[in-house]
């Protein structure tokens, strides 16, 4: 769907993107992760043709990115706004028409979406009279109104209350079912794990990690196990900092160069091993770990 090769962009002396390669396959939700100032917004702006890269190539469906592709992309920026004095209907119509829809087609689609998100009664309200969540919904509909095959959402859940966030999340998943490719740029790791199939992590203008969630998770294994032991035969060493609850002891141990079997074997000396499980890091932990390690290295 989207392929990026050796993309570079700098603002004066500071590099925003360095030799970035990226491939997003069709029909996936792609998480674009990275701390503030990593270069995510620059990348998104380049894909949206708001700015141009200094060098490198961007392909959309195998074609070099060109102005005609504008209508194939839906973009919800992190910092977003609407014309406060405009009515919901007029506003949506304007955005839809700018994306190249015919007036008749645009009206049909707006009607559909207003009904779907139960907002029909709001069509003649001015944006300034809407609640923030309502305005966000209008914004979201404006982004997807032209059925773009590629949807770029920058922090889509900020500003939504949990109920509306859930609605938007479901809409995103539904769009994915229909074959829309979604690029999701966010800091909220729980939504990444929930929604994304693939992720890429950018830090300091460079890609530091990418792949499916599973690949990424297996790439960073802290090799730590959580252990529960019952029916103690010998006392548990104090440095393991075990928590005792009735007759059970719970603690975590790193492999420290041993194989899991060796560790398990050792543990059996202390009593009945009731639980022996590798700790799978959350995306958040991976994120923090990766950012820190690139910063130190």
């Amino acid at each position: 769907m989207l392929k990026i090769e050796k993309l570079n962009k700098s603002y004066g002396a500071s590099k925003a993107l360095t030799d970035l390669d990226l491939e997003v396959s069709k029909g996936v939700v792609f998480g674009l992760l990275g701390p503030n100032g990593a270069g995510k917004t620059t990348l998104i702006r380049i894909i949206n043709q708001i700015i141009e890269g200094d060098s490198g190539k961007v392909y959309l469906n195998g074609e070099l990115l060109a102005p005609k592709h504008i209508s194939q992309i839906g973009y919800l920026p992190e910092e977003r706004g609407l014309y406060k004095k405009m009515k919901v209907w007029d506003q949506m119509l304007y955005f839809a028409r700018l994306k190249g829809l015919s007036p008749a087609d645009a009206k049909l689609k707006i009607k559909f979406w207003l009904d779907k998100l139960e907002m029909s009664t709001w069509r003649d309200k001015k944006i300034e009279d809407l609640s923030k969540g309502m305005a966000q919904k209008v914004q979201f509909i404006s982004t997807i109104i032209h059925n773009p095959p590629l949807l770029i959402l920058d922090e889509p859940f900020s500003g939504f209350d949990p109920v509306n966030a859930e609605i938007i999340k479901n809409e995103i998943l539904e769009l994915k079912e229909k074959g829309t490719t979604v690029i999701l740029s966010t800091h909220r790791m729980e939504s990444v794990e929930l929604l994304c199939d693939q992720v890429a992590m950018i830090n300091k203008s460079q890609k530091i990690l990418d792949g499916t969630i599973k690949q990424v998770k297996s790439s960073y294994r802290p090799e730590v196990f959580t252990i529960t032991i019952d029916q103690i035969k010998q006392p548990i060493p104090a440095e393991w900092a075990a928590k005792q609850d009735e007759t059970s002891y719970h603690f975590t141990l790193p492999l420290s160069g041993k194989t899991p079997n060796q560790l398990l074997h050792e543990l059996m000396e202390y009593g009945e091993v009731a639980q022996f499980r590798e700790v799978i890091p959350s995306m958040e932990e991976i994120f923090i770990h990766q950012v820190k390690s690139t910063e130190n290295g």
């Binding site: 949206n48 504008i70 920026p77 910092e79 977003r80 706004g81 609407l82 700018l98």
Partner: peptide, 13 residues
């Protein structure tokens, strides 16, 4: 200042 512009410039020059 209302950040509409970012959406607009993704649709037109």
């Amino acid at each position: 200042s209302s950040r509409i512009v970012e959406i607009l410039v993704s649709s037109l020059k």
